[in-house]
């Protein structure tokens, strides 16, 4: 009896992979299915929000610090108006002569009065309240200790009532809080990534168990671990990509809306925390990273389970 022609055609084939649509056909079309794409979508949305928040805080801190880095405030705390004005004038002249000082601006009396008016009321405009004289100084570089010490010595010589304060010091606690919030956001991102990986791990494990019979058949027919893991990776790629893109788009939309809301406040502080193009590219990496984490997690999960089979 003549043998079917197939016998001559399938001989000596190598170890080429089962990939692409052919691989997808081996597992049921339902793929991992279930809630995984939605879980990934929620995680991606939250991660985008956390990443956007962390970047905005970093921008705010960086831009504010840059603005205040070389800023100094000199107060002449003297009750006698004549002595105060004399010391202020001498201090301003002395500071302007110092190397590394970019600008010196004595704050006009009426501007100072307007600044404190919300607290002191109309009394701020009279001499009834002795306000200190203020000089706004900008250094060409950062206000390091050596420079401050030199300026303090000079001020002590020409204006004994002068007090010099780096402006960055005032916002020190604010910067500390921002730093803590950034760490919180990064921790949140790490936890969300771990939660996503855990969701994929559970889904891949359940899918493996649900398709164990098929996997064993493929295994017995000579399918290697990489081929079998590839079948799952394809399913995870589709599910996680759908979820991650959907979540990232939702998260980015919320970020844009929040940005517009804050922008409407027309506050320089808020605007300094806006996201740059590079930041948006970073946010766009979130779904990519999530899909990558999902793929690696699924592959690892399946490989470990396959490793228990002969």
């Amino acid at each position: 009896m003549r043998a079917p022609s197939v016998f001559a055609r399938a001989i000596g084939r190598g170890q080429a992979g089962l990939a692409g649509a052919r691989a997808a056909r081996v597992l049921p079309a339902t793929r991992l299915g279930g809630p995984m794409p939605w879980v990934i979508a929620i995680m991606a949305a939250l991660t985008v929000l956390a990443a956007g928040g962390a970047l905005a805080l970093a921008n705010f801190a960086e831009r504010t610090r840059a603005g205040l880095e070389g800023g100094l405030t000199v107060q002449i705390v003297e009750a006698d108006p004549a002595a105060r004005d004399g010391q202020a004038a001498r201090a301003a002249q002395a500071l302007a002569r110092q190397p590394g000082v970019a600008s010196v601006r004595p704050v006009p009396r009426d501007e100072l009065a307007r600044l404190v008016e919300p607290w002191l009321g109309e009394a701020a405009q009279s001499d009834a309240v002795a306000l200190p004289a203020l000089i706004d100084v900008a250094l060409a570089g950062p206000a390091d200790e050596a420079r401050l010490s030199r300026l303090r010595s000079e001020l002590a010589r020409v204006a004994p009532a002068a007090r010099l304060d780096p402006q960055a010091d005032w916002l020190g606690p604010v910067f500390e809080t921002i730093r803590a919030l950034r760490w919180l956001a990064l921790t949140l991102i790490a936890m969300l990534t771990a939660a996503s990986a855990a969701a994929v791990w559970l889904a891949a494990r359940n899918a493996f168990d649900a398709n164990r019979e098929t996997i064993e058949i493929v295994h017995h027919l000579g399918g290697n671990d990489t081929q079998i893991a590839g079948i799952f990776q394809r399913s995870v790629l589709i599910d996680s990509a759908l979820g991650a893109v959907l979540g990232a788009v939702l998260g980015a939309a919320v970020l844009v809306l929040l940005g517009e809301r804050f922008g409407a406040l027309q506050s320089g502080v808020v605007e300094s925390g806006s996201l740059s193009t590079l930041d948006w590219l970073g946010v766009a990496l979130v779904p990519v990273v999530m899909v990558g984490v999902a793929l690696l997690t699924a592959r690892r999960t399946v490989m470990v389970r396959l490793g228990r089979m002969l």
């Binding site: 084939r13 190598g14 992979g17 089962l18 027919l221 000579g222 081929q227």
Partner: peptide, 9 residues
């Protein structure tokens, strides 16, 4: 077809 696909045919 599965064994052939696994073998890269």
């Amino acid at each position: 077809a599965l064994p052939l696909r696994l073998s890269g045919v």
